[in-house]
Design a protein around this nucleic acid. Structure first.
Lengths: 167, 167
DNA sequence: TATTGTTATACTCTATAACTATA
DNA sequence: TATAGTTATAGAGTATAACAATA
């Protein structure tokens, strides 16, 4: 639970606008000190790189997450995947339709509950997720190279504690 | 540049799904180890809290950021604000229209460049940003209480280094 | 010719309500 | 009645292309 750390040297002696302004020399006031603001910028940058990384397979981050969960939990019910990824049922439908029409995943009626669908990857879907995992590992390695394993683990750890703060 | 730290104790001995699944017992595979995935979940949680925090003033995160930059840089040109916040010019127009029509900001023709607008907050806008800063400080304090100043600074520092990784 | 702001448009993600079919 | 999935719809945020006015 505890954590000991030394932040990187503060290179801006006064204002502390840091790099957040993307080269701009404007005064951003409290923004560079707000977790939410820095989170938005970081997420934009990482998602753009993720999209570029998986562009050859035409897969967006949300589709990669869905494919991953189905791959790891064959026969999982549709609603479970959505809940695990915080995607609303109504929004999940068209995403799954997309995967299904591309021949990557299948809906099968649940054995004991006629309301549910059991989701599985097709052979093509399984082959795709393997290729994607290789691409994504390369994408992730850039962060690992920049931050080191300790820095990356620390970031993951801190980020993972945030959702629990807002019940 | 260097950083020393001890991640929090790993409470899940085996799988390490952590809290990312929001209580689900599904196997999320590599997702909880991906910075981008954890970033998305953290940002969703923080933005939702921010929106709730500023709901009484009917201000979304992006409007707060714009108001802040205009407040800190009176007379700033429209394009500069957009560039500082990574908002495309074409998308910035309607956002500024919203602030202007609500009587919070003004467009004035730039003194020396007839193409530009100089942006300023109205008295009402200035009063609003002061109230917002109080609300946002409370929102941010929750993170500070949870992580401590060291943890928060570490998080901000790591997040701030991410955009520079993708030129 | 290049830049600033604007309009138009499209796509993705998200949110809500109402519907169906099963339980 | 409650739940799983679906449809319809609306709102944000983001992206590109084309245009007018100005430099």
């Amino acid at each position: 639970m505890a954590m000991t750390l030394k932040p990187t040297a503060k290179e801006k002696p006064s204002g502390a606008v840091s790099d957040a302004g993307a080269g701009s020399d404007l005064d951003l006031g409290p923004l560079p000190g707000l977790v939410g603001y820095m989170l938005r910028r970081a997420q934009l940058a990482i998602f753009n790189d993720f999209i570029k990384t998986c562009a050859a397979e035409d897969i967006r981050p949300i589709l990669y997450a869905i494919l991953t969960v189905i791959d790891r939990n064959p026969g999982v019910r549709q609603g479970e995947v959505g809940a695990a990824l915080a995607i609303k049922r109504s929004n999940f439908v068209s995403l799954l339709n997309e995967l299904e029409s591309r021949g990557l995943a299948t809906r099968t009626r649940h054995a004991t509950d006629g309301r549910s669908y059991a989701l599985d990857l097709t052979a093509e879907g399984k082959a795709l997720i393997r290729r994607l995992n290789t691409l994504v590992a390369g994408h992730e390695r850039r962060l690992l190279d920049a931050f080191g394993a300790d820095g990356r683990d620390c970031l993951i750890d801190l980020l993972g504690r945030i959702p629990a703060l807002y019940p």
